[in-house]
Amino acid sequence: MVTTVAPVATVGRRSRAGLVLTIVLVALALIAPLLVYPVFLMKALCFALFACAFNLVAGYGGLLSFGHAAFFGSAGYVTAHAAKVWGFPTELAIVVGVLAGTVLGVVFGWIAIRRQGIYFAMVTLALSQMIYFYALQVPFTHGEDGIQAVPRGHLFGFIDLNQTMTMYYVVLAIFLIGFAIIFRTIHSPFGQVLKAIRENEPRAISLGYRTERYKLVAFILSAALSSLAGSTKSIVFQLASLTDVHWSTSGEVVLMSLIGGLGTVLGPVVGAVVLTTMENYLAQFGSWVTVIQGVIFVLCVLTLRSGIVGAIEDVLRRRSRRKAAPGV
């Protein structure tokens, strides 16, 4: 009896709590630039979107991609080039960047989904390294210097993005749109199938789902949103550099999702904020940043595999179950 009642009650309470949480977080994001350095916030938002996009395939699809920097970085390059050299308006430059990253996602996904698990990670890593070497060699990326002094321009011709505050709210809007797309995808029938594939792929196949198609679509969507994050970042920092296509950026986004909680809605956001804050404070220590990242990786895998948000969810779930069934 208890088991039939409890889920309904918790779902109701949870969705109401979710709504409250959303309102609080959005309000917080709106007033945040008054309290914290806005450029830092924009960096955190770009990485948060990137991590959420990554989490869509890694957390919900069970496909741990180790090459997401390829989308993030090359979209950044294309957007920067379009805005600076071709003189595209900002919104068009971002669109072109996202398109480029998405095409890359189609190719990568098409090749990589032939393998699962560790192989998938290794294949995506190797493919993204190819992009890194390409970016290192072709002239338009300007090698080690990167594309510098990218004009921020005017969004839709009249919103001046050189104003830091304006830029912040545009980035926030982009993040919220991207986040909404991911949220909607996760909670759609498509997202349910994706989770089923993660849990038991042979079973999903036996139920008649063409799992490769689902995986490919999820991968492309994830690549597109990662590209959006990368394009936005290159406009914010007016720079596209080799760091963003380097494999360490792929590792960083894995770490962000792991800290926050793989397969949780808010986890990647939390992870991105935690890691960017940490890097901000640790920048002065040089190569120790890498060491500390490594330590966090190790600690998370050994002690906190469900991540911060995952752990909080576990606690809440256990508490609500205890409340629902006081006798047990």
């Binding site: 560790i118 894995v254 792991l258 060491v291 490594g294 190790v298 895998v301």
Partner: peptide, 21 residues
């Protein structure tokens, strides 16, 4: 096994970071 990959990556970062420092 994907956690093994993350763990060994973390260890590699620690080792390389220390040597680079």
């Amino acid at each position: 096994h994907l956690y093994g990959l993350m763990l060994t990556l973390g260890l590699a970062q620690i080792i390389e970071g220390v040597f680079r420092d």
